[in-house]
Protein backbone atom coordinates (compact mmCIF):
# COMPACT_ATOMS: atom_id res chain seq x y z
CA UNK A 1 0.00 0.00 0.00
CA UNK A 2 2.62 2.45 1.03
CA UNK A 3 4.57 4.04 -1.73
CA UNK A 4 8.23 4.50 -1.12
CA UNK A 5 8.35 7.90 -2.70
CA UNK A 6 5.70 9.18 -0.43
CA UNK A 7 7.42 7.79 2.60
CA UNK A 8 10.77 9.20 1.74
CA UNK A 9 9.49 12.41 0.23
CA UNK A 10 6.69 14.70 1.20
CA UNK A 11 6.38 13.68 4.81
CA UNK A 12 9.36 11.62 5.78
CA UNK A 13 9.37 10.28 9.29
CA UNK A 14 11.17 12.65 11.60
CA UNK A 15 14.29 11.21 13.10
CA UNK A 16 14.68 9.97 16.66
CA UNK A 17 11.05 9.96 17.63
CA UNK A 18 9.82 8.48 20.83
CA UNK A 19 8.39 4.96 20.61
CA UNK A 20 4.80 6.11 20.45
CA UNK A 21 5.66 8.98 18.14
CA UNK A 22 7.22 6.67 15.58
CA UNK A 23 4.35 4.23 15.88
CA UNK A 24 1.81 6.96 15.39
CA UNK A 25 3.58 8.32 12.34
CA UNK A 26 3.35 4.87 10.80
CA UNK A 27 -0.24 4.56 11.90
CA UNK A 28 -1.16 7.84 10.26
CA UNK A 29 0.50 6.82 7.03
CA UNK A 30 -1.20 3.42 7.03
CA UNK A 31 -4.54 4.99 7.81
CA UNK A 32 -4.26 7.49 4.98
CA UNK A 33 -3.29 4.81 2.52
CA UNK A 34 -6.06 2.49 3.65
CA UNK A 35 -8.77 5.11 3.48
CA UNK A 36 -7.64 6.12 0.01
CA UNK A 37 -7.57 2.59 -1.37
CA UNK A 38 -10.28 1.22 -3.58
CA UNK A 39 -11.06 -2.00 -1.72
CA UNK A 40 -11.60 -0.02 1.39
CA UNK A 41 -14.04 2.40 -0.17
CA UNK A 42 -15.95 -0.48 -1.75
CA UNK A 43 -16.17 -2.40 1.51
CA UNK A 44 -17.38 0.71 3.28
CA UNK A 45 -19.98 1.41 0.65
CA UNK A 46 -21.17 -2.20 0.64
CA UNK A 47 -21.40 -2.33 4.40
CA UNK A 48 -23.27 0.96 4.52
CA UNK A 49 -25.79 -0.01 1.89
CA UNK A 50 -26.40 -3.41 3.46
CA UNK A 51 -26.81 -1.89 6.90
CA UNK A 52 -29.33 0.60 5.57
CA UNK A 53 -31.15 -2.18 3.76
CA UNK A 54 -31.34 -4.30 6.88
CA UNK A 55 -32.69 -1.35 8.81
CA UNK A 56 -35.35 -0.78 6.16
CA UNK A 57 -36.26 -4.46 6.12
CA UNK A 58 -36.71 -4.57 9.84
CA UNK A 59 -38.75 -1.40 9.81
CA UNK A 60 -40.98 -2.64 7.04
CA UNK A 61 -41.96 -5.65 9.10
CA UNK A 62 -42.82 -3.56 12.11
CA UNK A 63 -46.10 -2.49 10.57
CA UNK A 64 -48.57 -0.66 12.76
CA UNK A 65 -47.07 -1.35 16.10
CA UNK A 66 -43.84 0.50 15.59
CA UNK A 67 -42.39 -2.09 17.83
CA UNK A 68 -39.08 -3.83 17.34
CA UNK A 69 -39.01 -7.07 19.32
CA UNK A 70 -35.62 -7.69 20.77
CA UNK A 71 -34.29 -4.91 18.57
CA UNK A 72 -35.06 -6.60 15.31
CA UNK A 73 -32.88 -4.16 13.45
CA UNK A 74 -29.98 -5.00 15.65
CA UNK A 75 -30.61 -8.70 15.13
CA UNK A 76 -30.50 -8.15 11.37
CA UNK A 77 -27.38 -6.04 11.62
CA UNK A 78 -25.82 -8.75 13.78
CA UNK A 79 -25.92 -11.28 10.99
CA UNK A 80 -24.54 -8.75 8.56
CA UNK A 81 -21.74 -7.71 10.87
CA UNK A 82 -20.81 -11.30 11.62
CA UNK A 83 -20.41 -11.99 7.93
CA UNK A 84 -18.73 -8.86 6.62
CA UNK A 85 -16.66 -7.36 9.41
CA UNK A 86 -14.46 -10.44 9.97
CA UNK A 87 -13.93 -10.69 6.22
CA UNK A 88 -12.93 -7.04 5.99
CA UNK A 89 -10.62 -7.14 8.96
CA UNK A 90 -9.01 -10.49 8.20
CA UNK A 91 -8.19 -9.62 4.59
CA UNK A 92 -6.97 -6.16 5.52
CA UNK A 93 -4.72 -7.63 8.20
CA UNK A 94 -3.51 -10.41 5.95
CA UNK A 95 -2.36 -7.97 3.30
CA UNK A 96 -0.51 -5.58 5.54
CA UNK A 97 2.91 -7.26 5.98
CA UNK A 98 2.86 -10.02 3.41
CA UNK A 99 2.04 -7.57 0.64
CA UNK A 100 4.89 -5.25 1.52
CA UNK A 101 7.25 -8.17 1.86
CA UNK A 102 6.27 -9.54 -1.54
CA UNK A 103 6.73 -6.20 -3.24
CA UNK A 104 10.03 -5.65 -1.50
CA UNK A 105 8.88 -2.46 0.16
CA UNK A 106 9.12 -3.95 3.61
CA UNK A 107 12.89 -3.52 3.57
CA UNK A 108 12.50 0.16 2.93
CA UNK A 109 10.06 0.50 5.79
CA UNK A 110 12.41 -1.29 8.11
CA UNK A 111 15.24 0.94 7.02
CA UNK A 112 13.49 3.83 8.72
CA UNK A 113 14.87 4.67 12.14
CA UNK A 114 12.12 2.83 13.96
CA UNK A 115 11.96 -0.62 15.47
CA UNK A 116 10.18 -3.56 13.90
CA UNK A 117 7.65 -3.50 16.71
CA UNK A 118 6.85 0.11 15.90
CA UNK A 119 6.33 -0.71 12.24
CA UNK A 120 3.96 -3.55 13.03
CA UNK A 121 2.03 -1.71 15.73
CA UNK A 122 1.82 1.36 13.56
CA UNK A 123 0.33 -0.62 10.74
CA UNK A 124 -2.10 -2.31 13.12
CA UNK A 125 -3.26 0.93 14.69
CA UNK A 126 -3.65 2.61 11.31
CA UNK A 127 -5.67 -0.22 9.86
CA UNK A 128 -7.79 -0.54 13.00
CA UNK A 129 -8.60 3.15 12.85
CA UNK A 130 -9.51 2.87 9.20
CA UNK A 131 -11.78 -0.10 9.90
CA UNK A 132 -13.51 1.66 12.74
CA UNK A 133 -14.08 4.67 10.49
CA UNK A 134 -15.57 2.45 7.84
CA UNK A 135 -17.90 0.82 10.37
CA UNK A 136 -18.90 4.20 11.73
CA UNK A 137 -19.92 5.36 8.29
CA UNK A 138 -22.14 2.31 7.85
CA UNK A 139 -23.63 2.42 11.31
CA UNK A 140 -24.03 6.15 11.17
CA UNK A 141 -26.01 6.20 7.97
CA UNK A 142 -28.13 3.30 9.10
CA UNK A 143 -28.78 5.02 12.42
CA UNK A 144 -29.91 8.13 10.57
CA UNK A 145 -32.32 6.03 8.55
CA UNK A 146 -33.66 4.43 11.71
CA UNK A 147 -34.05 7.75 13.39
CA UNK A 148 -35.78 9.23 10.39
CA UNK A 149 -38.21 6.33 10.01
CA UNK A 150 -39.12 5.61 13.60
CA UNK A 151 -38.28 8.75 15.51
CA UNK A 152 -36.12 6.95 18.03
CA UNK A 153 -33.44 4.33 18.08
CA UNK A 154 -32.53 2.22 21.09
CA UNK A 155 -29.54 4.50 21.42
CA UNK A 156 -27.60 2.76 24.15
CA UNK A 157 -27.99 -0.66 22.61
CA UNK A 158 -26.99 0.68 19.22
CA UNK A 159 -23.89 2.38 20.62
CA UNK A 160 -22.92 -0.85 22.33
CA UNK A 161 -23.36 -2.67 19.04
CA UNK A 162 -20.92 -0.25 17.44
CA UNK A 163 -18.41 -0.68 20.28
CA UNK A 164 -18.62 -4.46 20.20
CA UNK A 165 -18.25 -4.39 16.43
CA UNK A 166 -15.13 -2.28 16.72
CA UNK A 167 -13.77 -4.80 19.21
CA UNK A 168 -14.62 -7.61 16.82
CA UNK A 169 -12.87 -5.81 13.97
CA UNK A 170 -9.74 -5.40 16.10
CA UNK A 171 -9.75 -9.06 17.11
CA UNK A 172 -10.08 -10.14 13.50
CA UNK A 173 -7.46 -7.64 12.40
CA UNK A 174 -4.94 -9.01 14.84
CA UNK A 175 -5.55 -12.54 13.59
CA UNK A 176 -5.10 -11.20 10.07
CA UNK A 177 -1.83 -9.49 10.99
CA UNK A 178 -0.55 -12.69 12.57
CA UNK A 179 -1.35 -14.59 9.38
CA UNK A 180 0.38 -11.88 7.40
CA UNK A 181 3.54 -12.05 9.49
CA UNK A 182 3.66 -15.81 9.05
CA UNK A 183 3.09 -15.80 5.28
CA UNK A 184 5.73 -15.16 2.65
CA UNK A 185 3.33 -14.39 -0.14
CA UNK A 186 0.27 -12.20 0.05
CA UNK A 187 -1.83 -14.68 -1.93
CA UNK A 188 -1.12 -17.32 0.70
CA UNK A 189 -1.95 -14.87 3.46
CA UNK A 190 -5.27 -13.97 1.82
CA UNK A 191 -6.09 -17.63 1.29
CA UNK A 192 -5.38 -18.52 4.89
CA UNK A 193 -7.37 -15.48 6.04
CA UNK A 194 -10.36 -16.62 3.98
CA UNK A 195 -10.11 -20.09 5.46
CA UNK A 196 -9.98 -18.67 8.97
CA UNK A 197 -13.02 -16.56 8.14
CA UNK A 198 -14.90 -19.59 6.89
CA UNK A 199 -13.95 -21.49 10.02
CA UNK A 200 -14.98 -18.80 12.47
CA UNK A 201 -18.19 -17.88 10.70
CA UNK A 202 -19.47 -21.29 9.64
CA UNK A 203 -17.37 -24.34 10.34
CA UNK A 204 -16.85 -23.97 14.08
CA UNK A 205 -20.54 -23.29 14.73
CA UNK A 206 -21.64 -26.12 12.49
CA UNK A 207 -19.16 -28.41 14.18
CA UNK A 208 -20.42 -27.39 17.59
CA UNK A 209 -24.01 -27.96 16.46
CA UNK A 210 -23.11 -31.44 15.31
CA UNK A 211 -21.22 -32.08 18.53
CA UNK A 212 -24.19 -30.93 20.59
CA UNK A 213 -26.50 -33.27 18.70
CA UNK A 214 -24.20 -36.27 18.70
CA UNK A 215 -22.68 -36.09 22.18
CA UNK A 216 -25.72 -34.53 23.88
CA UNK A 217 -23.49 -31.88 25.40
CA UNK A 218 -24.70 -30.20 28.57
CA UNK A 219 -25.43 -26.48 28.62
CA UNK A 220 -22.21 -25.62 30.43
CA UNK A 221 -20.17 -27.48 27.85
CA UNK A 222 -21.98 -25.91 24.91
CA UNK A 223 -21.55 -22.45 26.39
CA UNK A 224 -17.89 -22.98 27.23
CA UNK A 225 -17.09 -24.20 23.75
CA UNK A 226 -19.16 -21.54 22.05
CA UNK A 227 -17.50 -18.52 23.66
CA UNK A 228 -14.12 -19.72 22.44
CA UNK A 229 -15.28 -18.39 19.09
CA UNK A 230 -14.92 -14.60 19.12
CA UNK A 231 -17.92 -14.31 16.83
CA UNK A 232 -20.16 -16.12 19.30
CA UNK A 233 -18.78 -13.97 22.11
CA UNK A 234 -19.61 -10.95 19.99
CA UNK A 235 -23.15 -12.09 19.30
CA UNK A 236 -23.85 -12.91 22.93
CA UNK A 237 -22.28 -9.65 24.08
CA UNK A 238 -24.52 -7.60 21.82
CA UNK A 239 -27.64 -9.49 22.88
CA UNK A 240 -26.78 -9.19 26.58
CA UNK A 241 -26.37 -5.45 26.23
CA UNK A 242 -29.62 -5.14 24.38
CA UNK A 243 -31.73 -7.53 26.36
CA UNK A 244 -30.08 -7.75 29.79
CA UNK A 245 -30.59 -11.48 29.43
CA UNK A 246 -29.61 -14.18 26.99
CA UNK A 247 -32.95 -15.98 27.21
CA UNK A 248 -33.54 -15.49 23.48
CA UNK A 249 -30.75 -18.02 23.03
CA UNK A 250 -32.66 -20.79 24.76
CA UNK A 251 -31.45 -23.01 27.61
CA UNK A 252 -27.78 -22.26 27.06
CA UNK A 253 -28.38 -18.53 27.13
CA UNK A 254 -30.58 -18.80 30.22
CA UNK A 255 -27.85 -20.81 31.93
CA UNK A 256 -25.23 -18.20 31.05
CA UNK A 257 -27.40 -15.37 32.35
CA UNK A 258 -28.07 -17.19 35.61
CA UNK A 259 -24.55 -18.43 36.18
CA UNK A 260 -22.69 -15.22 35.43
CA UNK A 261 -25.32 -12.52 35.95
CA UNK A 262 -24.04 -9.00 35.49
CA UNK A 263 -20.50 -10.20 34.92
CA UNK A 264 -21.50 -11.87 31.66
CA UNK A 265 -21.08 -8.80 29.48
CA UNK A 266 -17.62 -8.15 30.91
CA UNK A 267 -16.68 -11.77 30.45
CA UNK A 268 -17.67 -11.71 26.80
CA UNK A 269 -15.91 -8.42 26.17
CA UNK A 270 -12.83 -9.82 27.88
CA UNK A 271 -12.91 -12.88 25.63
CA UNK A 272 -12.87 -10.64 22.60
CA UNK A 273 -10.12 -8.51 24.08
CA UNK A 274 -8.01 -11.62 24.52
CA UNK A 275 -8.61 -12.42 20.87
CA UNK A 276 -7.50 -8.91 19.97
CA UNK A 277 -4.35 -8.90 22.10
CA UNK A 278 -2.92 -12.42 21.97
CA UNK A 279 -2.57 -12.81 18.18
CA UNK A 280 -1.18 -9.27 17.95
CA UNK A 281 1.36 -10.02 20.64
CA UNK A 282 2.33 -13.23 18.86
CA UNK A 283 2.65 -11.30 15.62
CA UNK A 284 4.92 -8.69 17.26
CA UNK A 285 7.17 -11.36 18.76
CA UNK A 286 7.40 -13.36 15.55
CA UNK A 287 7.94 -10.29 13.41
CA UNK A 288 10.75 -9.09 15.68
CA UNK A 289 12.43 -12.49 15.42
CA UNK A 290 11.94 -13.27 11.77
CA UNK A 291 13.64 -11.35 9.08
CA UNK A 292 11.93 -9.31 6.48
CA UNK A 293 12.74 -11.81 3.72
Amino acid sequence: MTTINALAGERALPQARSFSGGTLAFARREFRDAVASRWFLLYTLAFTVLAVAVSFMSLSSVGTHGFAGFGRTTAGLLNLVMLIVPLMALTAGAGCIAGERERGTLLYLLAQPVSRTQVLLGKYVGLAAALVCSLCVGFGVSACVLAWRTGSVGFGAYAMLVCFTALLAMAMLSIGVLISVLSRRSSVATGVALFVWLTLVFLSDLGLMAGTLIFQLRVQEVFGLAILNPLQAFKMGVIVNMNASLDVLGPVGAYASQAFGDGLAFMLAATMLVWALVPLLAAVVLFARRGSA
Binding site: L78, M82, F202, M209, L213, Q216, V219, V248
Partner: peptide
Protein backbone atom coordinates in the same frame (compact mmCIF):
# COMPACT_ATOMS: atom_id res chain seq x y z
CA UNK B 1 -34.75 -32.33 18.95
CA UNK B 2 -32.10 -30.40 20.86
CA UNK B 3 -33.23 -27.10 22.46
CA UNK B 4 -29.63 -26.19 23.31
CA UNK B 5 -29.08 -25.41 19.65
CA UNK B 6 -31.07 -22.23 20.09
CA UNK B 7 -27.72 -20.72 21.03
CA UNK B 8 -26.97 -20.55 17.32
CA UNK B 9 -29.92 -18.43 16.20
CA UNK B 10 -29.11 -15.08 14.65
CA UNK B 11 -25.88 -16.42 13.22
CA UNK B 12 -24.64 -17.13 9.72
CA UNK B 13 -24.33 -20.80 10.66
Amino acid sequence: REPNLRLFVHSPA
